[in-house]
Design a protein around this nucleic acid. Structure first.
Lengths: 196, 196
DNA sequence: GACGTAAGTCAACGGCTATTTACATCCCTT
DNA sequence: AAGGGATGTAAATAGCCGTTGACTTACGTC
């Protein structure tokens, strides 16, 4: 019992290393894509042996799916707690270092696996429905399709901004701070989803 | 001299097969990314032997760079001939089948090679400058940075739309026609770049 | 404090990849 | 029409990838 302060840092903690693998994988997959990421990249980031990926996640594919599942949870948590109009701005103006950016980028990465693909598109759909509901969209509305299209354009903008900020050094976009981005982005969001 | 109509179709034509490799590679790289694309995928698409990639382009990296060079030329040609305000709409509302979409997606794909990376960012910069100049941007304008940021947001939207349309089946965005997209997109472009 | 199990490592494997080398075939020139 | 360079093929190689099974080591339990 080495408990001094809060949590004793065990040198062997399955749940903790599993989580660290998940975090490292999410970042790698989001930044570099599935195929370009090797399991050794991920385990080297964490500092553990390669075999642990297969122990905890069965396969590289399984690890990818686990990342998507974590992304679902995280995005739902962010969109649920904050006022939605704030959530939009938060999602859109997140800096390149932000976790939300990684989650967004993960939505664009494909592994070829069917199951993962279904999760991925489901997550995108859920995100765009959350956005559309800000502007008054309701599932049964027969005229809701145009509104949904506009919500998905907002999502497309967020996705595009995240992509360009992370995968290029295109200035001023890549280095702009929230205060510079917020103005134009709000104009666009207001244009597409008026009553947010 | 088998010249009957236009061009005699020789069974061995280096320039032609080189071009076919380039076309197939551009599509593959744009859709699947660099790492996920194997040179065998590309040569199988064309129906030739794998070794030809190395013969005509030295390496897989060389082929990727050649694709970027082709994209530079093509984007410049499109942006140059048409009125620029039309070019914007054309770029943005291009369907998933369109070549411009592939070119746009290629701008987001990285191979890890430094040289290719420089070409890629240069192409993005050039594209955003073309867009910004529509709204009156001039290279020396000290206040031009805000305008450039807005132009790059338009580019980000185009990039996001292209990505979502190609790599997901998110409806209605993925299946929307030009006539449905044109309206909202024009609103956004007018908001970001007023005088186009 | 020994013991058993959980946690992590090590080393090896089969398969796939890009690349190269040597060889076959076509097509133009003279 | 015959040679020769250009065009394409076939096969082999070296390296990296994901995955696996046998092992070592730490840790909670009796």
């Amino acid at each position: 019992m080495t408990a001094s302060g809060a949590e004793a840092v065990r040198r062997r903690d399955a749940a903790r290393t599993r989580q660290r693998l998940l975090d490292a994988a999410l970042k790698r997959f989001a930044h570099d894509g599935y195929a370009a990421t090797t399991v050794r990249d991920i385990t080297d980031d964490v500092g553990v042996n390669v075999a642990l990926v297969n122990r905890y996640f069965q396969s590289k594919e399984g690890l990818f799916e686990a990342c998507l599942a974590a992304a679902v949870e995280e995005l739902r948590r962010v969109a649920g707690n904050a006022p939605l109009s704030d959530a939009i701005r938060h999602i859109i103006t997140a800096t390149g270092e932000d976790r939300i950016t990684d989650v967004l980028l993960l939505l664009l990465r494909t592994s070829g696996d069917e199951n993962a693909e279904r999760m991925r598109v489901g997550l995108l759909r859920s995100a765009s429905e959350d956005l559309a509901s800000v502007a008054g969209w309701r599932p049964e509305d027969p005229q809701g399709e145009a509104l949904m299209l506009r919500a998905q354009l907002v999502l497309a903008l967020a996705v595009g901004v995240a992509t360009l900020r992370v995968s290029t050094e295109l200035r001023p976009l890549a280095t702009a701070g929230d205060e510079e981005l917020a103005g134009p982005l709000r104009e666009v969001v207001d244009t597409l989803l008026p009553r947010s």
